[in-house]
């Protein structure tokens, strides 16, 4: 009920803004959805690991940045086709993900969750330093077919690279849904997420499921990283700025509910749109807060709001219990 109320208020604000100045609104809205698609992709990586292992994996942030640079390397240094490069990068990061699990995290089984999360932060920093060591003179964008091009919808201009990001985000989400709902491996992943020992007792290879989850997380990270590195909104380009964006996806994950792929997408879109709206309208409607910066806080405000009303997030698993 309260949640619905909050939703109605937020929607009313959006409608008001839309009528107030349609062109500005829809430009911001499109950018928000594009940013949301990036957040959603990053979140899906978080979620898939969280479901399999119950940890929030900060190495995901590092994998997003590293994936961007591996794609860059293939496109720019080796002159490969953009899509082929991204595929190659996805494969590399899948292997890195499996390696992290096999050689670092598996040893931590049964250790306090706090230590495990710290280890993932360590892995993130490791990737970040590797980037600094390997790519000392990288360009500021991954060369791609859409640089500087826009599509026009009426009077609203949208970056082509943003359109590609949205399409990829939708495709990845659809594949996730199909994987979880309709395949045997997906059933094994869901069973493992609920009760690892019971899954083992059915003959489901839990270590195999965990490794697969890391591979998927690595591959999804590459898509997010590559699109950010190609100049997708918020236009950070190729650089460590990508990790700042990836970290902003955390409130989106919490809003969606830590273990829900659909929640990750909805949470990502909500945060993306909210962020762009705050950037666009801060000086106009809330000048008392200064000229910029509110956008960086807003995702966390929304997160606190959602958690107050629904502690398990919008789509997070609440215990199924008979009453």
């Amino acid at each position: 009920m309260v949640l619905a109320g909050v939703g109605v208020v937020l929607l009313a604000i959006l409608v008001f803004l839309a009528f107030d100045g349609p062109q500005k609104f829809f430009t911001l809205f499109a950018a928000g959805i594009a940013l949301g698609a990036v957040y959603a992709l990053v979140c899906l990586g978080f979620v898939v690991i969280y479901r399999a292992t119950g940890i929030v994996n900060f190495a995901q942030v590092g994998m997003v940045v590293f994936g961007a640079f591996v794609t860059y390397n293939a496109v720019y240094t080796w002159g490969w086709n953009f899509w082929l490069s991204m595929l190659f990068s996805a494969a590399v990061l899948a292997v890195i993900g499996i390696g992290f699990e096999r050689f670092a995290l598996r040893r931590m089984t049964g250790k306090p969750i706090f230590s495990i999360i710290l280890l993932t932060i360590g892995l993130y920093l490791l990737l970040q330093s590797l980037i600094g060591a390997i790519w000392t003179n990288a360009k500021d964008t991954i060369p791609n077919p859409w640089i500087g091009k826009t599509v026009s919808l009426g009077s609203v201009n949208i970056l082509q690279v943003d359109v590609v990001t949205m399409v990829l985000g939708a495709a990845v989400l659809a594949s996730f849904f199909a994987l979880f709902r309709y395949t045997k491996v997906g059933l094994g992943m869901r069973a493992t997420a609920i009760d690892q020992e019971a899954a083992l007792a059915q003959g489901i290879s839990v270590p195999g499921i965990v490794a697969l989850s890391w591979a998927i997380a690595g591959a999804v990270a590459v898509i997010a990283g590559t699109m950010l590195g190609s100049g997708a909104t918020p236009k950070v380009g190729l650089g460590l700025g990508i990790s700042a964006v990836a970290l902003q996806a955390l409130p989106a994950m919490v809003i969606g509910g830590l273990d829900s792929p659909i929640g990750a997408v909805i949470g990502g879109l909500v945060i993306g749109v909210a962020y762009e709206m705050a950037v666009g309208y801060q000086t106009q409607y809330i000048p008392s807060l200064g000229t910029s910066g509110f956008a960086d806080v807003l995702p966390y405000l929304l997160m606190v709001l959602v958690l107050l009303i629904r502690p398990s997030g919008l789509f997070g698993t609440r215990d199924v219990q008979r009453v």
Partner: peptide, 19 residues
């Protein structure tokens, strides 16, 4: 019992045939 509470009865049964 340790059934998968959030999965449907159908999915629970199918998980038993995983191997």
């Amino acid at each position: 019992r340790r059934i998968f509470a959030e999965l449907t009865v159908d999915e629970n049964l199918r998980s038993g045939a995983f191997t």
